[in-house]
């Protein structure tokens, strides 16, 4: 029994951390621009494809892995920046429905582009030998790469929090997020901040795509899957809340792994049960308002 609980705990965190890495960019973009970006899943997918392309399907060494991740993140960040300038910047003043529709249109467009560029065959990225396989801890088998992902997720969570709370970029970002007009009236380059945040959010999606690609079939079906899970996390955590996204991702991961272990019948629905419960009991999400108005 203890073994099962411990295993579910470890696997829950291992499930949740990659979800956080994907959702972090989504919640960042929502927090600053109030844009629910459906195209985030496409950013994720492009990250996975680019990572595959850079490494040619084989992860040979840790330095290649890092180079691949950097290229995936930077390229997807650039795509995000172009999307911001070409599409979203013109729509910030409009209502949510308009931006939502535009982001959906972008998702479909990027989906189509991915299919044009990479075709329809699924790809596979091999695991770095050092990160392949598993080990035993307290009688529970733990995948080595899960530990890597948990580490990367933790570093990202801390890094993003420090960036938003402790740096002048973070101050400016929070100011723009809360009151773009006042920020501009103080002389802050709100447009530059929005561009940077959008690019950063997209880059996080690209990074996530590269990081998680060794565990997935890299094909055009990736985009919708991750967008649904990320939206659920952002809703549960509170729109725009970075801390909320981390906790929601871990909660959803744990809920999933405990459901799978102890109530397999509910496993497929646990995500939706969580979203429904949160919407009923705490519509603003676990962490309430966006990080701009209170502490992150």
């Amino acid at each position: 029994m203890f073994g099962q609980i411990f295993a579910a705990l470890v696997s829950g965190i291992a499930t949740g951390m990659p979800l956080f890495i994907v959702a972090s960019g989504l919640t960042l973009i929502y927090g600053v621009m109030r844009v629910l970006n459906f195209a985030h899943g496409a950013f994720f997918m492009i990250g996975a494809f680019l990572f595959y392309n850079v490494l040619g399907g084989v992860t040979g060494s840790i330095s290649l892995l890092i180079v691949g991740l950097l290229i995936a993140a930077l390229s997807v960040g650039a795509i995000g920046a172009v999307s911001e300038v070409a599409v979203f910047r013109r729509l910030y003043a409009r209502d949510h429905t308009t931006t939502l529709l535009a982001s959906y249109a972008l998702l479909l467009t990027l989906d189509g582009l991915v299919q044009q560029i990479w075709g329809v065959s699924p790809r596979s990225q091999t695991q770095l030998p050092a990160f392949a396989g598993s080990f035993q801890i307290l009688g529970v088998r733990v995948a080595t790469y899960d530990v890597v992902l948990i580490g990367v997720g933790a570093v990202l969570a801390i890094g993003l929090t420090l960036l938003l709370q402790r740096t002048s970029f973070g101050q400016t970002t929070r100011a723009v997020a809360h009151d773009q007009t006042m920020a501009r009236a103080l002389g802050l380059h709100a447009r530059g901040v929005q561009l940077a945040v959008f690019a950063l959010g997209a880059a996080l999606a690209g990074l996530a795509g590269g990081l998680i690609s060794p565990l997935l079939s890299i094909d055009p079906s990736l985009a919708p899957t991750f967008v649904v899970q990320s939206f659920a996390i952002v809703i549960v955590g509170g729109l725009g809340s970075m801390g909320g996204a981390l906790i929601a991702a871990l909660l959803i991961g744990l809920l999933d792994s405990f459901a799978v272990t102890f109530f397999p019948g509910f496993a497929g629905f646990s995500l939706y049960i969580a979203v429904t419960l949160v919407l009923l009991l705490r519509p603003q999400g676990i962490f309430g308002a966006a990080f701009a108005s209170r502490e992150a």
């Binding site: 579910a8 696997s11 995948a143 991750f226």
Partner: peptide, 23 residues
């Protein structure tokens, strides 16, 4: 030992794999 059923669109099976591995 166990039966795990996942949505057709799902692609992340961490929990299922961990549960099978642990059981």
């Amino acid at each position: 030992n166990s039966e795990q059923f996942v949505p057709l669109s799902a692609s992340d099976f961490h929990s299922q794999v961990a549960a099978i591995s642990g059981g």
